[in-house]
Computed example of a mutant assay.
Amino acid sequence: MAGSNFVDYVKIFCRSGAGGQGSAHLHRDKLTMKGGPDGGDGGRGGHVIIKANAQLWTLIHLRFSRHVFAKDGGSGGQSRSTGYEGEDQIIEVPLGTVARDAETGEVIFDVTEDGESKILVKGGRGGLGNWNFRSSTNQTPRYAQQGEERVERAVILELKVLADVGLVGFPSVGKSTLLSVVSAAKPKIADYPFTTLVPNLGIVGYRDNRSFVMADIPGIIEGAHEGRGLGLRFLRHIERNSVLLFMVAADSDNIHKEYKILLNELKQFNPELLDKKRLLAITKSDMLDEELKDEIRLDLPNIPYTFISSVAQQGIVELKDMLWNAINEDNETAPKAE
């Protein structure tokens, strides 16, 4: 998922197809000079449809195709024949994509399962042919109904990646390194802040051929909700995660304080994130002996925690066990904000 190819936000302009006009045809053949109405209905206009595709990871394919127009329906014909339906336009998107009205910001729907399809903009209904308007007092109606007009709508598509575990931490705390160690993902790793500029996903192998998905997002800093650093733009990618793994380096001046800063930034972005299960990984712990670990334990937040070192491969198995149990626990009460 290269940074230049990752697009998680696009605005598109959609227009459905107009419904076809109903026919006002009167029956004629060599034996009938003045027959009754036999005009058929117009065809439905094409829909604009969103379809989830598990093979897609980004919205980049929509960056330069931001106008999506469905086809109009055909007019009705004689012998009560219905006009053809307008061709639908199908927009394929990654799982976890949310569609919002661009003017109101209201969520229209989201798609989370492979192959799931939902109508974004409905095509116009076809007009009724004169066959539908015949009556005992009007046996030869010479009129038919127009089809419904096209519908135009500006829509914002936002991608929220689907993962079981979301990594939360300051820049350079070791999130990308952990992801590269526990999965086949190859995120960019360097010893300077904000190395990760886009979310990365990795499938973490577990015991008995089981697995779960982990998401690494760009690091956040204090004041991110005010736009500092990379802001909170990427936090929407952990809104769907069932477990949040907070990561704080062992050489931090105050691990508990850093945890509370991160927690506050999540709260400022979306208070509902505080309802998720939270775990803590103290990274770069290969520099600690047991005495230092005991000292650190005295002032840790009241959530499950473990000491790890991705580089030294320490505590990784224990971390996987802790994450797997948290993902699969039922009726777990989320920890309260501290």
Rank of each mutant, 00 (worst) to 15 (best):
V165H: 06
G42V: 01
E152C: 06
G169S: 08
I308R: 07
G315R: 02
G174F: 00
R142T: 12
L274Y: 09
G43V: 02
D321W: 05
N130T: 09
K260D: 12
I119T: 14
S285H: 03
A52P: 07
K175Y: 04
F194W: 04
K11N: 09
L319V: 10
G126M: 09
E222L: 08
W324G: 03
D101V: 03
K188S: 12
E92V: 10
A70K: 06
G115K: 08
E291H: 11
A52C: 08
Y305K: 05
T140L: 13
L31A: 08
S310I: 08
R142E: 14
D208M: 05
G166S: 03
L273E: 00
F269T: 14
D38H: 11
N130P: 10
G205H: 09
S285M: 07
I90R: 09
T196D: 15
A52R: 01
G86P: 07
P171D: 06
L263Y: 07
D330L: 15
A70V: 08
N264E: 14
L56E: 01
F269M: 00
L178P: 01
V204A: 03
S172I: 02
T283I: 00
E226Q: 13
G3F: 00
G174H: 06
G127L: 09
G126S: 04
A184Y: 02
I49Q: 02
I91P: 14
R100H: 13
Q145N: 07
G96Q: 04
N264M: 13
V182A: 03
S285G: 09
L244Q: 05
K257S: 12
E106K: 13
L159A: 02
L279E: 07
E272K: 11
V311D: 11
G229D: 04
L232Y: 00
A18G: 00
N325M: 12
G19V: 04
I221C: 07
A224S: 15
D8Y: 06
G83N: 06
P141I: 02
E149A: 14
S16I: 01
G127K: 04
R210A: 13
F64M: 08
E103N: 05
P218W: 04
S310N: 01
A326K: 03
I90S: 10
E290G: 01
A326Y: 00
A52M: 06
V317A: 13
G77S: 11
L167Y: 01
L235E: 02
G36E: 03
D101Y: 00
